[in-house]
Amino acid sequence: MSIQHFRVALIPFFAAFCLPVFAHPETLVKVKDAEDQLGARVGYIELDLNSGKILESFRPEERFPMMSTFKVLLCGAVLSRVDAGQEQLGRRIHYSQNDLVKYSPVTEKHLTDGMTVRELCSAAITMSDNTAANLLLTTIGGPKELTAFLHNMGDHVTRLDRWEPELNEAIPNDERDTTMPAAMATTLRKLLTGELLTLASRQQLIDWMEADKVAGPLLRSALPAGWFIADKSGASERGSRGIIAALGPDGKPSRIVVIYTTGSQATMDERNRQIAEIGASLIKHW
């Protein structure tokens, strides 16, 4: 058993032996400061991975655009179909130039040979490839079927209504393609630790998130040596930015963190910096 498999397999085991986890309101002070700095709403939640207890939250039940963070949920739905014998990670999917949409750094290189379902999930999560996400959405029946999958998990909040890139429109008060921090954190925890997916599929999902290559300026920039993080970021119109993550010290995840912001006029660099500073406060007061 690899170190990674050891880590995921023991998450339920550690729940019975973990020390009490204490919240630190200092992080919420930073979240509120980020709102002031960005001139935008910020949603935040910090969840204990083992118990599911909410440690801190700010606007946990307000809607925010999901942006590309939905791609983790999408690959969770794909893995659920794999577990049920309805899909194979090794199945190759062929597509054409007409299928390519904006920001497809991986799929645009494989027009001649296509990509496997496994490769598409990797591209969608680690590189946020939009065509990969659309191709995967097609395999499960489209955005409405992803919403149905989430409903069956008990998440009646999170919804996907459109495809890439239209889902990134982020119109104020538009509930399409949105979630709430509390709903996203709970759903992510179920995917990573619950019985919905097999152990192998849970491991695969967290491996893809751990290999994320496009979230460096966010929480990863504040991470001390030896800490673990598996994450997925997102960005969209109207100053929207977000990240969902499982992270913790000693090389294993122990908390879920979800951060969303929307409605800012700030630059992408400034949005990144504010999220990184929230992460730094979280780690300092861990």
Rank of each mutant, 00 (worst) to 15 (best):
R202M: 06
T187A: 05
A280T: 10
T198L: 07
I278L: 05
P253Y: 06
G90I: 09
G234E: 00
T186Q: 12
I275L: 09
I283Y: 10
I93Y: 04
E56R: 05
A200E: 15
M153N: 08
V106C: 09
E56A: 10
F228G: 01
I283T: 04
L19F: 15
E61G: 14
E270G: 07
P60H: 13
M184I: 10
N168M: 04
G114C: 09
E175H: 11
L219G: 01
D250I: 05
I275T: 01
G216R: 06
T139R: 09
G194D: 10
A84C: 11
A276G: 07
D113G: 12
G251W: 05
P224R: 02
L135C: 04
I244F: 01
P253V: 05
G52C: 02
T158R: 00
N173A: 11
A225P: 15
G242C: 06
K252T: 12
N98S: 14
G251H: 11
T187V: 05
L136S: 00
H94A: 11
R92G: 04
T198V: 06
R238M: 13
A215L: 01
P253I: 06
L247M: 13
L197G: 01
L19A: 15
R91S: 05
K252G: 08
R63G: 01
L223P: 00
G43D: 00
K53Q: 14
M180V: 13
I206R: 10
E87A: 04
T267V: 07
L223M: 11
D231E: 03
I244C: 05
D83S: 02
S2R: 11
P181L: 00
I229V: 05
P165Q: 04
F13C: 12
S80Y: 13
R81G: 05
N152K: 14
Y44F: 09
E87H: 02
V8F: 15
V8Q: 12
T126N: 04
T178S: 11
L73H: 03
P12D: 06
R41V: 06
A266C: 12
D174M: 03
F6A: 09
G242F: 00
I206Y: 08
E46V: 10
A222W: 04
A280G: 11
P60L: 07
P12Q: 11
A200P: 13
L73P: 11
Y260D: 00
M268I: 10
V101L: 07
T198G: 10
M67V: 07
L247T: 02
Q4E: 12
R202L: 03
S201P: 01
R202G: 06
G226D: 08
E195G: 12
R220S: 02
M184R: 00
A16S: 15
P65C: 03
R159G: 01
I3A: 10
R202W: 01
V42A: 05
I256L: 07
L188E: 00
L111H: 09
D99V: 09
C75V: 13
L218V: 02
F6C: 11
A9R: 08
R92H: 08
R176V: 05
R91T: 07
I11N: 04
L146A: 03
L136T: 01
A266L: 09
P172S: 10
K109Q: 15
V72T: 05
D83E: 09
N98T: 14
L111R: 07
R41T: 08
A148R: 15
L136R: 00
F6Y: 10
T138A: 15
L218N: 03
D174C: 06
F228K: 03
K213R: 12
S281L: 09
A211K: 12
A225E: 15
P224D: 02
D36I: 15
L188C: 06
D269L: 10
A225V: 12
R220G: 02
L10N: 05
E195R: 12
P165R: 03
E166K: 08
L223I: 13
A40C: 12
D212E: 03
Y260F: 11
T107L: 06
R241A: 06
M180G: 09
L160I: 12
G263V: 07
P172F: 08
E87G: 02
Q97K: 15
D250H: 10
A222L: 05
I3D: 08
R241G: 07
L10Q: 06
S221T: 11
H5A: 12
G251V: 04
P224I: 01
I93Q: 03
D174E: 08
I229Y: 04
R91G: 02
R41G: 02
T126S: 10
S221Y: 07
A215S: 11
P253L: 06
I243T: 01
M67L: 12
R91L: 03
E166M: 09
W227R: 00
A225L: 09
G216S: 09
L218E: 02
L79C: 02
S57Y: 08
L160V: 12
G234C: 04
M268V: 08
Q37E: 12
R159Q: 07
K284S: 12
I244A: 03
S221L: 07
L137V: 05
M153Y: 06
H5Q: 13
E175N: 11
P20D: 14
H94S: 10
V214F: 04
S201T: 05
A170L: 10
L205V: 04
L205I: 07
S254A: 13
S201H: 06
N272I: 02
S221V: 09
I283N: 00
S240R: 01
G251E: 07
A211M: 11
S254Q: 14
R241V: 05
V82M: 04
T178Q: 02
F149S: 04
D155I: 07
V101G: 04
L150V: 10
K213S: 10
A9V: 10
G76A: 11
P12L: 14
R202C: 08
A148S: 14
A215G: 09
V106L: 12
Y103L: 05
S221Q: 12
K252F: 11
I278M: 05
S221H: 10
G52L: 02
R241L: 05
N134A: 01
R238Q: 13
G239T: 07
Q86P: 03
N134C: 01
Y44S: 00
D161V: 03
I206A: 09
K53A: 15
K144S: 15
S68N: 00
M180C: 15
A123V: 04
T112M: 15
R241Y: 04
S254H: 08
L160G: 01
Q4R: 13
I244M: 04
K213H: 08
R271Q: 13
S221M: 08
D129N: 00
L89K: 02
P181I: 01
R41D: 05
I140T: 04
N168G: 09
W227L: 00
A245E: 00
L38A: 04
N152S: 14
N50A: 15
I206T: 12
G76S: 07
L89T: 04
P224E: 02
L47Q: 06
M115T: 02
P60T: 07
Y95H: 05
A246Y: 08
T147N: 14
P181T: 02
A215R: 03
R118G: 15
S57R: 10
E210S: 10
K144V: 12
V214G: 07
G43S: 02
T187Q: 02
